[in-house]
Design a protein around this nucleic acid. Structure first.
Lengths: 340, 340
DNA sequence: GTGAAAGCGCTAACAA
DNA sequence: TTGTTAGCGCTTTCAC
């Protein structure tokens, strides 16, 4: 399958044509210093004439590097794949990576077979590092990558005891300040639509919600909590349930902007006015969702920062040969808009 | 950066430990025939004990294959990245590829620099083939890949004269039958919300729309056509425009289910009842959009088939060494639901 | 059925 | 500044 065309010129042929040694050609294509300008030009011409393209397998083998990093999306995250949050993260990672000269490779891991295949791919040296998105609590993939000593950075911890390098947002603090704000406004029956509770981030946001209630001397009620999976549809369902159980709800903290948008729809369908009757605050902040529901208040996660930080940690680990794990927790910011 | 751990065992060490030659180990890890069962077992044990993992760069170099294919998303498609259609396509491609043992690598190409980097990556032999999504009319990437004799398959033609291998849906026929159906129902003022008109697929659908009108002895009006970019938001805008221009609209063919959903919202906002006052038919068919707007009629594109066909064409090209281009046009199906 | 040997095309260290 | 050389770890004949 797919053998390369035999006629492909090699570095050696380029060297012959340019009348120099292979080492010199190698230096030129790698922009290494220490080559006379005239030689460099001669080599460049030979490259053009032969339409030479370096063989990356050979380069990897000799140079022990792949010049590529993988961004892995595992099955449970699949639905978020279609969410703006996800595409924004990918965009920001692409930006952050763009001047490193490394290829960003997005890989989907949906079955155990695919998980295995990816592991072989990564351990086989096809990538220099791995970025993982919002891994579930029980996922062992990060451990296996760490064992193989592959530089690995998670977006979001799996638990409070996460050791593998990660970048996370201050979920507890963000949720707490959002709910405190609602209470400060005089809202009294504040509910929350959580994310999937097998994600640590969702647990943290729930904890922040509860802390804010406690701080205000209120008691959290189980029936004021409903779970979603970050989609608008699940937000709609969760909100409908909550209204059913507590017709007097006047404030909501939602798992994401998308969920919040769903919640808004459910509220309107139920005849509630927003924000007069009910105030809604979502989590995350990204252009697309804002475009759709511009009046939504949010706990903003700095997405550009997340991408930059993940790439920075990854590069650091690659640089030093994975001797230490690094953790970064980015602050969130409460952004209030009309609807609150 | 990212040098591999020095301690990594090689095939040679495995051979030594198992007391066999390197060739034998190679045969075992590649499941080649012609190895005595007892030898095979011995080699397997050595592999386990040493935790041996094959170096894929070396394998690529010697074997002239990458065992990976790239799925490229170019900038203008970026927004569709967040659309369910896109994730469904990726899912179906993943399924179709899953038993070939090849890695699916999703790559984003947003700038010319990234385009160049990807080209080097692909021509450098890191992938055995390339799948491209809905390429714009003027995009030269397919030509460059073809020139490099890389097996390449497009989803959607760039124009009627496309030569590079592609899988496409019968857009003209699908649009025509949808509009004919509307007219047959007695709808008289049928508008269309097109996709981006620099995409051949969008042009075809517009043509099908016009053909149906002509067939019915009607004359197409410029003002009954509005352009969208496949997003719900643009559908909303386009529909609002159309109603403004033609308050008597009673039928709409939309560029996609997502666009149709946006159109529905705009219609309802304008006080129109659907389908009593206005019937809407979208293009595409995928679970997520159907979940959101279950009552929408659609011109169904067989997504599973698309993935399968693309992978089949790619494998065929890889097999024979890219000596011919192949074209497949899949039929569409009109699926009527309540709202029509 | 198995071992030995000849590359695959490049980088990097060392000479010159 | 440049050429030479020794691998990188695997697949694949070709003998045995």
């Amino acid at each position: 399958m797919g053998r390369r065309r035999p006629g492909t010129p090699t570095l050696e042929e380029v060297a012959a044509r340019a009348g120099v040694g292979r080492g010199t050609v190698s230096r030129v294509i790698n922009n290494a210093a220490g080559v006379k300008e005239s030689t460099r030009r001669a080599v460049r011409r030979a490259i053009e004439e032969l339409e030479y393209v370096p063989n990356l397998a050979a380069r990897s083998l000799a140079g022990r590097r792949a010049d590529a990093v993988a961004l892995v999306v595992t099955e449970p995250d699949w639905r978020s794949f279609a969410e703006p949050f996800f595409s924004e993260i990918v965009r920001s990672l692409g930006d952050a990576l763009s001047d490193t000269g490394m290829q960003l490779l997005l890989t989907l891991v949906r079955s155990d077979a695919e998980r295995q295949r990816f592991l072989e791919y990564a351990r086989g040296g096809r990538v220099d590092g791995v970025l993982l998105l919002s891994v579930r609590a029980g996922d062992r993939l990060p451990d296996m990558l760490a064992e193989a000593r592959l530089p690995t950075v998670l977006l979001g911890r799996r638990s409070g005891e996460e050791y593998v390098s990660y970048v996370d947002a201050d979920n507890i603090g963000g949720a707490r300040s959002a709910v405190s704000q609602l209470l400060r406004q005089g809202r009294r029956v504040v509910a929350t639509i959580t994310g999937p509770l097998d994600m640590y981030a969702a647990q943290c946001r729930l904890r922040g919600y509860q802390e804010a209630l406690t701080l205000a001397g209120l008691e959290g009620e189980q029936t004021l909590v409903a779970e979603s999976d970050f989609t608008a549809e699940s937000g709609r369902r969760a909100m409908a349930e909550l209204i059913e159980r507590h017709p007097d709800i006047d404030g909501v903290l939602a798992a994401s902007d998308t969920t919040a948008a769903g919640a808004l729809e459910a509220l309107r369908a139920a005849g509630r006015r927003v924000p007069e009757d009910v105030a809604v605050i979502g989590f995350d902040d990204f252009p697309l969702a804002q475009r759709t529901t511009p009046r939504l208040s949010t706990v903003r996660q700095p997405i550009e920062e997340i991408g930059r930080a993940m790439v920075r940690l990854l590069l650091e680990e690659m640089e030093e040969g994975a001797v230490a794990w690094r953790h970064v927790i980015l602050r969130t910011e409460l952004v209030l808009r009309e609807s609150t």
